[in-house]
Each structure stands twice: as C-alpha cells, then as structure tokens.
Design a protein around this nucleic acid. Sequence first.
DNA 1: CTGTTACTTAGCCACATGGCTAATCAACTC
DNA 2: GAGTTGATTAGCCATGTGGCTAAGTAACAG
Lengths: 109, 109
Amino acid sequence: MANQLDTIFSAMADPTRRAVIERLLDGPASVSDLHGPHDMALPSFLKHLNKLERAGLVRSEKTGRTRTLHIEAAPMAAAEDWLTQQRRLWEGRLDRLQALAEALERPKT
Amino acid sequence: MANQLDTIFSAMADPTRRAVIERLLDGPASVSDLHGPHDMALPSFLKHLNKLERAGLVRSEKTGRTRTLHIEAAPMAAAEDWLTQQRRLWEGRLDRLQALAEALERPKT
DNA sequence: CTGTTACTTAGCCACATGGCTAATCAACTC
DNA sequence: GAGTTGATTAGCCATGTGGCTAAGTAACAG
C-alpha cells in the first residue's frame, strides 16, 4: 500500500480495530486488557493490534512480559483532513450550483 | 462486513477509489471518463466503481449504453463523524490530563 | 444490417486478510 | 527450579481483493 491514507483507512475499516481505538482513547492498556471484551483467540486479536501499529495509529512498549499500547492521535487527523477537504469541495460545488440556479430564476436583473 | 463504517472506510482505503471520489466531486461522469486517467484494464477499474457503489458513496444510472456516476456525499459524513468524535474524545482526554498536571503543580492553593 | 462503442460477465491468478490451533518464549511467583 | 501467565511465532485454512484476458451484450452510427 503506497499512500499513508491507504493504511490508515484500511486499519479503520474493521470494527474490532475501531473498538480498540475507542478503548485506547480512555488511556493506555495492555494486550490482554484490550483483548478481554473481544471473543476471538489472542493471536487473531494480535494481528489487529499489529495492523493498527503498522498504520501508526497506535504505539506500544514492552516492559517485563506485558506490552502496553497507547494511541497516536496524529495520523487519524490525516484521514479526517482528507474527508473534511472532500466535504468542503462538495459543499462548494453545491453553492455554485445554487448560485447558478438563482441566476437562472432571475434571467435579467 | 457488518457495519456501514466498515464498507465506507474500506472503500476509501484505495488511491484509485479516492481519485474517483475526488473526480466526481467535480460533477457526474461516465464509466469511461472516470477510467481515462487510470492505467488499468476496464474490468479491473469497474470493480473499484462497484465497490464504491456498494459502499453507497456513489450512485449510477445507465441511459443508453453509457452509465453515469455521481457522488453520494452523505455516507462520507458518517466516516468523518466517527473520526471527529474520536478526536473530540482525545482532546477531552488531553484537557483532563492538563488539568490534572496543573492541579499537581499547585498542590494547595 | 454492419461495425463500433461502452460496458459487462466469466474466469483465471497471486496475494492479503482474518480467523484458528499448537507450540514457544520470557518473565514473574512460589 | 517448576509452574503460571502474557505475549508471540508458526503454520493452516477459507475468503476477499485487485489485477488480467477473452468473450459477450446492448445501443448508436452509417
């Protein structure tokens, strides 16, 4: 995947991973803490965490035998920015269309 | 894919599809118009369009032999909303941490 | 009605994804 | 040091994804 947006969007395209993000907004947590609520084998769950980490949405450090993860908010902003920009362009287009419509309603002012 | 956010995010996790979205913000276009700039066989490209349509980000009608696509902005808002909400929560958490830090700096006011 | 154009379908391929079990590693606990 | 616990690795499987070619359909142009 070339673009950073690719990995970010695809990391967010999964409910398990979004749930992890939501959970981490509350504060750091260990792998097994995060795993707790998810009905899924640990190795499967780990893959999700790895994907989040590769996307840069999460960082982690291992101390002793437990790994602690915390969220990295900045990359999500990239995704949000893209969406916001598209919305602005879209709204701008609607404005132009509306202006056009109004101009047509009043042919010769 | 259960959730609507799943399909939306995963639809946006590809540069070709994002480019199509960006192009469509400028106004409706036919399949081959959209295909033009992309160095890819038509059937491959069609798969991308179908994925966009299944995600609800795009609608299309066929008149005569050409299919015209236009953007459906609303679903993107769902994705943006989710991101915005996460950011708010994150910022809220930072505020609380900062408040805590300030409280600790001035132990007994 | 023949040819061209604009998609569409079918079918193939390689690789990624998301799940699993079993086994291993490393660090605490007793 | 033996056992337990937290995390990881290896390897398997089914399905999805993203690309292709080849062939088919449907409408428009002459």
